[in-house]
């Protein structure tokens, strides 16, 4: 089930409260970077059905991903949203404690984004060091791709370029 970010609160409230669905337990909440857009994926559990319900909030822009928080239904989602913010930079509006949870507080970039490069990641990833969900795997291209080193400066290698410029432009942490 794919929904847009504006519908999250409405859909989740319906799924949680409606006696027909009764999806009382949020099994998991995670962020996904497909390379072109950001997604937030929820897995819900109900005692009415043995299957999982997967709700994908699709189409968050990579530059400024924003989604409403579900902490008003499950306050346990607070840390999961903090983790998604920490790893992907997705800002959950309504979460009252949206700090970094794993990385140090003065950390600038978001590690699980696809444009965040590790040293050995750049050497093996095809095409500009960014793997897109839509990009099919082509071994021939993989062999042809030169080893990417230009993305790794001497000190700014772990800094995602897009994020850095965005923050410099606005002059503050997007969380605040």
């Amino acid at each position: 089930m794919r929904i847009s970010p504006t519908d999250v609160a409405q859909v989740m409230t319906l799924l949680h409260d409606d006696p027909e669905f009764r999806f009382l337990i949020l099994s998991d909440l995670c962020g996904v970077d497909t390379g072109s857009v950001m997604q937030v994926v929820y897995h819900l559990w109900s005692d009415a059905t043995p299957d999982w319900l997967r709700v994908i909030v699709d189409g968050l822009p990579r530059e400024d991903p924003r989604a409403p928080s579900v902490t008003f239904l499950w306050n346990g989602a607070e840390w999961a949203e903090r983790e998604a913010y920490d790893m992907f930079g997705i800002i959950f509006e309504g979460n009252r404690d949206l700090r970094r949870i794993y990385m140090p507080p003065d950390y600038q970039s978001f590690p699980l984004r696809k444009d965040f490069l590790l040293a050995d990641d750049a050497a093996r990833s095809p095409g500009q060091g960014v793997r897109h969900m839509e990009q099919t795997f082509q071994p021939a291209e993989y062999r042809r791709t030169p080893v990417l080193r230009q993305g790794l400066g001497s000190d700014a290698g772990h800094m995602a370029p897009g994020i850095q410029t965005a923050e410099l432009a606005s002059g503050e942490d997007p969380a605040r």
């Binding site: 099994s27 995670c30 996904v32 897995h43 346990g76 607070e78 840390w79 999961a80 795997f137």
Partner: peptide, 28 residues
């Protein structure tokens, strides 16, 4: 409940492997 959400793009590497650890939520 230990769960994982995996996405594959057809290569031999996981595109995304999300691990849901129960300790994380229980600790909260």
């Amino acid at each position: 409940q230990y769960s994982a959400y995996g996405m594959s793009d057809g290569s031999d590497q996981p595109f995304r492997l999300r691990i849901h650890d129960p300790s994380f939520f229980n600790l909260q």
